[in-house]
């Protein structure tokens, strides 16, 4: 369960560059909720995810995951509960390390690290199994450097890394936006499969309205750092792009075009 309460974040407060990013936003996700987040550029979507992950600290408000108040915990301490896939395929993986090393680090997320070897036959078998679910042949390339992978392969690996610990909260920030449409489709399919299989509590930012409608049991829209719309259940299930655009006067080109 994820609960964000009255989150406020104002960048460069008190200067001419003041940028309100979160304006008293509250959001509650039950375990297993899969929430799609839409909103125009600058609405505060990334800031919300950064505030949950710990990459930024909010000015006021709180972030609670599974009963643990994480409001003032640094990113690395939240990693036990929160996992994420960044928009930039280079962001979530260590390029100069091998696929198996990246997976090993992800699998150890939230545990204490020891002076025993990071890899062994048993772990490798497990990683091979997980990678095979992607259908990209990565299971044959455990010892390849991640920097040799394509953007889509790298993002798929980042996805496997994020879900390997079955995190309490999974954050996806436009994680398919940097990929070509075909690759984006493949990565999105893997994402949905993985999230549904494990029943992960997920927050997925997307600028693709069709994705926002097709996937997840909830849909929220941010505007100026606040929740403009929230729908779930049957209401969301019966939604189509036209009615969404019509109802919420979405004029943002970026949203409409994709």
């Amino acid at each position: 369960m994820l609960e964000v309460s009255d989150a406020v974040k104002i960048f460069h407060r008190g200067t001419v560059n003041e940028r309100p990013a979160l304006n008293g936003l509250s959001l509650k996700l039950e375990s297993g909720d899969f929430t799609a987040v839409i909103g125009s550029n600058g609405a505060g979507k990334s800031t919300l995810l950064n505030a949950i992950a710990g990459d930024i600290s909010i000015d006021s408000g709180s972030v609670v995951v599974d009963g643990n108040d994480l409001t003032s915990a640094p990113t690395h301490r939240r990693a036990k509960w929160v996992a994420r896939v960044f928009q930039d395929p280079l962001g979530g993986t260590a390029g100069t390390m091998t696929i198996e090393e990246n997976l090993a680090l992800a699998a150890l997320r939230g545990q204490s690290h020891s002076l025993s070897l990071g890899l062994n036959a048993q772990r490798r078998d497990y990683y091979r199994e997980l990678l095979a679910t992607l259908g990209l042949g990565l299971e044959e390339r455990l010892t390849s450097k991640v920097e040799l992978l394509s953007g889509g392969q790298r993002q798929s690996l980042a996805l496997i890394m994020a879900i390997i610990t079955e995190p309490a909260v999974l954050l996806l920030d436009e994680h398919c936006a940097a990929l070509d449409p075909k690759t984006a489709g493949i990565v999105m399919d893997s994402t949905i499969k993985a999230v549904e299989a494990a029943g992960l509590t997920t927050v997925m930012v997307t600028h693709n309205m069709q994705h926002a409608i097709d996937y997840g049991n909830r849909l929220i829209m941010l505007e100026a750092g606040q929740l403009k719309l929230s729908m779930d259940g049957d209401e969301k299930a019966s939604l189509d792009v036209e009615s969404l655009v019509e109802r919420f006067h979405i004029t943002d080109d970026k949203i409409l075009l994709s």
Binding site: A53, D55, P74, T75, H76, R77, A79, K80, A83, R84, F86, L90, G91, G92, T93, A94, G95, T96, M97, E101, A104, L105, A106, L108, R109, G110, Q111, H113, S114, L115, S116, L117, G118, L119, M161
Partner: peptide
């Protein structure tokens, strides 16, 4: 040997990608 251990691998991750390292729970 050290750079192949869990701790040594984490240290390499810090140099390889700071953002990824902290997202994987590495201080």
């Amino acid at each position: 040997w050290f750079f192949k251990t869990e701790i040594g691998m984490s240290m390499r991750a810090v140099g390889a990608n700071l953002k990824m390292a902290s997202a994987q729970g590495i201080n």
